[in-house]
Simulated scan of single mutants.
Amino acid sequence: ACVAVGPIADDLVAKIVERASSIKTGDGAKDSDMGPLITKVHRDKVASYIDAGEFEGAKVVLDGRNVAVEGAEDGFWLGPTLLDNVTPEMSVYTDEIFGPVLSVVRVETYDEAMALINSNPYGNGTAIFTND
């Protein structure tokens, strides 16, 4: 998950969409950036998290569920996906998805961001970017 603080959130989401939209999904031997998921079952599981996030109120800003790769339509494709307005109660925040899905949680203050990060039972990784 990505935690976006206050007024930078809109700009951050826009920049992520800009970059992620340029990622080409396809056969790794043929000029692409990202290949398929390992099995249909896993592809469907990851897609079900996107469905659940949307149902729970997250905004699907970039949707990779309908990626089609010419000549390999039966592949287990799932393109980059960005979910915004995620809350800590949603499964897309609480579960490790193991797919190309980024969830953005918005908070108002740095202290709120730190409390959110510190209350998470997993230590998967956190980065803070500041001007000072």
Score class of each variant (00 low, 15 high):
A20K: 07
A20Y: 13
M114E: 03
G35F: 04
A52S: 13
I128Y: 02
E18C: 02
F98T: 08
E18K: 10
E96Y: 06
I50W: 05
T39C: 05
L78P: 14
G79R: 04
I23A: 01
G99Q: 05
K45N: 15
S22W: 04
N85A: 05
K15M: 07
D31A: 12
G53E: 05
D44G: 08
L62V: 01
T94R: 15
E112F: 00
T25R: 08
A127S: 14
G53Y: 04
G28S: 04
G26W: 07
V105M: 13
F55A: 15
S32T: 11
T130A: 07
D27C: 07
N66S: 07
L83K: 08
D31L: 14
M114C: 05
S103V: 12
E70W: 08
R19Q: 03
E112S: 05
A20N: 03
R43I: 02
W77V: 12
L62M: 00
D27W: 03
V67N: 13
S22V: 01
D11W: 00
I50A: 04
I128A: 00
S32Q: 01
I117A: 13
P80Y: 00
K59H: 02
A58G: 07
T25C: 13
F98R: 09
G26L: 10
E112I: 00
S48Q: 05
E112M: 04
A127R: 05
D132E: 14
F98E: 08
N131Y: 09
S91Q: 11
A1D: 10
G57I: 01
V3S: 02
